[in-house]
Measured scan of single mutants.
Amino acid sequence: AKPPKTVTVKVEVTNADGETQTRTVTLTNLPKDLKPGDTVTLPETGQTARIVEITP
């Protein structure tokens, strides 16, 4: 079996106070056609994050 493909992405997350924070997260099994501006759900927090940058 192939190991899951991990991708490092820079995302913007809005916290409970309405502040936008930029975080770098490593995600696995992202859709192939994901692009900056799309939103993903962070598995560890369940927060919705907007992708700023994808590092191949």
Score class of each variant (00 low, 15 high):
residue 45 T to Y: 05
residue 15 N to I: 06
residue 7 V to I: 10
residue 46 G to C: 05
residue 45 T to F: 06
residue 22 T to A: 06
residue 3 P to A: 10
residue 54 I to E: 02
residue 4 P to A: 15
residue 56 P to D: 13
residue 15 N to L: 12
residue 3 P to G: 11
residue 7 V to G: 04
residue 35 K to A: 09
residue 13 V to F: 15
residue 34 L to G: 02
residue 32 K to M: 13
residue 17 D to S: 12
residue 40 V to A: 01
residue 26 T to P: 04
residue 22 T to Y: 10
residue 41 T to Y: 12
residue 41 T to R: 10
residue 48 T to Y: 02
residue 46 G to W: 01
residue 30 L to G: 12
residue 46 G to S: 04
residue 38 D to F: 03
residue 44 E to F: 04
residue 5 K to L: 13
residue 25 V to A: 03
residue 16 A to E: 11
residue 36 P to W: 04
residue 1 A to V: 12
residue 31 P to F: 13
residue 32 K to E: 15
residue 4 P to Q: 11
residue 36 P to N: 05
residue 46 G to F: 02
residue 23 R to P: 01
residue 38 D to T: 04
residue 44 E to D: 14
residue 45 T to D: 08
residue 41 T to D: 06
residue 18 G to T: 01
residue 52 V to N: 01
residue 43 P to A: 07
residue 2 K to D: 13
residue 52 V to M: 07
residue 10 K to R: 10
residue 32 K to I: 15
residue 20 T to K: 13
residue 8 T to S: 10
residue 20 T to E: 03
residue 13 V to K: 01
residue 45 T to R: 03
residue 32 K to V: 14
residue 9 V to Y: 03
residue 1 A to N: 12
residue 14 T to I: 14
residue 36 P to K: 07
residue 10 K to E: 04
residue 47 Q to L: 10
residue 33 D to S: 09
residue 3 P to S: 10
residue 18 G to V: 01
residue 27 L to S: 10
residue 9 V to L: 10
residue 29 N to R: 04
residue 40 V to M: 11
residue 3 P to N: 09
residue 56 P to K: 10
residue 16 A to W: 08
residue 1 A to H: 14
residue 45 T to I: 09
residue 47 Q to C: 06
residue 22 T to L: 11
residue 26 T to M: 08
residue 39 T to M: 14
residue 47 Q to E: 14
residue 21 Q to T: 13
residue 10 K to C: 07
residue 38 D to P: 00
residue 40 V to H: 01
residue 23 R to I: 15
residue 13 V to S: 03
residue 52 V to F: 01
residue 13 V to Y: 14
residue 43 P to E: 08
residue 41 T to V: 15
residue 51 I to C: 01
residue 56 P to Q: 10
residue 45 T to Q: 03
residue 53 E to S: 12
residue 27 L to G: 09
residue 22 T to I: 15
residue 9 V to S: 00
residue 16 A to C: 10
residue 32 K to Y: 04
residue 33 D to I: 07
residue 12 E to G: 02
residue 40 V to Y: 05
residue 51 I to E: 00
residue 11 V to I: 12
residue 52 V to T: 05
residue 48 T to K: 13
residue 9 V to F: 01
residue 6 T to A: 13
residue 47 Q to D: 08
residue 19 E to I: 12
residue 42 L to F: 06
residue 1 A to L: 10
residue 50 R to T: 12
residue 53 E to C: 09
residue 23 R to N: 05
residue 55 T to R: 11
residue 16 A to H: 10
residue 54 I to C: 03
residue 42 L to R: 00
residue 16 A to K: 11
residue 47 Q to K: 05
residue 19 E to D: 09
residue 6 T to L: 12
residue 3 P to M: 07
residue 26 T to H: 14
residue 14 T to G: 03
residue 34 L to D: 00
residue 1 A to E: 13
residue 26 T to R: 10
residue 25 V to C: 04
residue 32 K to N: 15
residue 35 K to W: 05
residue 26 T to K: 10
residue 24 T to S: 05
residue 1 A to K: 08
residue 27 L to A: 08
residue 22 T to Q: 09
residue 29 N to D: 15
residue 19 E to Y: 09
residue 2 K to R: 09
residue 5 K to A: 14
residue 54 I to K: 01
residue 50 R to Q: 06
residue 40 V to L: 09
residue 15 N to V: 06
residue 5 K to H: 14
residue 42 L to S: 01
residue 55 T to A: 15
residue 52 V to H: 02
residue 48 T to D: 06
residue 44 E to P: 06
